[in-house]
Computed example of a mutant assay.
Amino acid sequence: MNIRKVLPHELGEAAALSDFVFRQPDQQSMGRLFPYLFDPGISQSYGAFTEEGKIVAFMGLVPEVIRVGSARLCVFGLGSVCTHPDYRGQNLASKLLEECMEHAKRSGASLVFVSGDRSLYMRSGCQYFGHVHSAALNHSAARSLQAGIADGWTVRNMEPEDIFAVTELFASAQVGYEQGPAQLLALLGASPIPDIYRLNPQALVAIKGGRVQAFALAAVHSADIQSTTASEEPSRAVEWAGDIQGCALLFAEIYNRFPSKHMILPIPWQQEELLRLLQASGAEVTDGRNSGTVWIADASSLLNQCSSLLPDSWGSIFRTNVSLDQERSYTITKGDRELQLDDSGLLSLLFDPKSPHKPMAPEDFKTIPLPYLSGLHFV
């Protein structure tokens, strides 16, 4: 079996394999849902090929840049992992994962975000990470939001001519993926999350003072849905940007236009204002982790790319250790106290506001926020 990069002319065959493994007849092709994996171009992904050149296993990689204030994190998204049933049991996925991890290191990436938590990933060092609240918006909460916010706002469907305004809303956010209008249009057109849940995408904008000030995308049921069983399934917020009150109003409007038992909104911990609005409206809120898992491709790259977010004293108390067998560990020294961390501990300290290791961080250290990973950029 030949393990190598997938060539541009082979991406269509890779999409067909992914469709065979993951898709049902009523669902769209993976090739359409994930254009940055399967459209022609310089592929970052890997496959397992027979001697005859047939692809029988695939692992998709998409390079991204996540903006956190002044920092830029070079990361990969990893997903669409599949093996043809006739070729399972040959350890192909493990071999592909090894190649993808080496690719990430060579590329200078700091992190690889994985859209799953299979034992395959956890055995290879992937970790749960971050902190995300989950708010359940119901009819009463939606009414409360509309009553408290609606003055001065106009809500309508997003139009193609809104693309520059919406792109600017995303670009103005403190935390998010770097993207231009063409990439945003492609992702909005693909919208994989609604299709995964067999729902429909719905994008709205909120206008105040004569300009677009908020955007929201959700996965919703059809307006004319008659099935009681289907309507019991929640609708889901996918992505939003701009004025927080405007975003909350948009989700309330979407919920009322496309009713379901409730709408799930995954709120990253740093979006405190949106969380307060939803709690005040009566939405039920629970706590959890960010979506999927993450692997540290290179700890030095991670700390360098985060350097503008770390206190000046970080370098004097933090040390990276690499053993003879290449196992990584980290030491934090604070006064006469010393703390040893593994990758899981470092990820907790950097990205989890509830990390038990925070007392050992410098006094002026602030938890680094990340976007929710199962939005428009889900792989």
Rank of each mutant, 00 (worst) to 15 (best):
V6N: 02
E10W: 03
L33W: 02
P35E: 04
G41I: 10
G41C: 13
E51R: 04
V56M: 12
P63D: 05
L78Q: 10
Y87Q: 06
N91K: 10
L96G: 00
G108Y: 07
S110G: 11
L111I: 10
V112A: 09
V114N: 07
M122C: 11
G130Q: 04
A147I: 02
G152H: 06
M158N: 09
E161I: 04
F170M: 03
A171S: 14
E178M: 14
G180P: 11
P194M: 05
P194T: 08
I196F: 07
A206P: 14
A206E: 00
A206W: 05
L217I: 14
L217G: 08
A219L: 14
S222Y: 09
A223I: 14
A237V: 02
G242A: 11
D243F: 03
G246V: 13
L250C: 10
F258W: 14
H262Y: 15
W269V: 12
L274N: 02
S281N: 09
T286P: 04
V294Q: 09
W295G: 08
I296G: 12
I296L: 12
S300E: 08
N304P: 01
P311D: 01
E327D: 00
S329G: 13
K334I: 02
K334T: 06
D336L: 07
D336K: 14
D342R: 12
L346Y: 10
K358L: 11
K358C: 03
P359C: 13
M360E: 03
A361T: 03
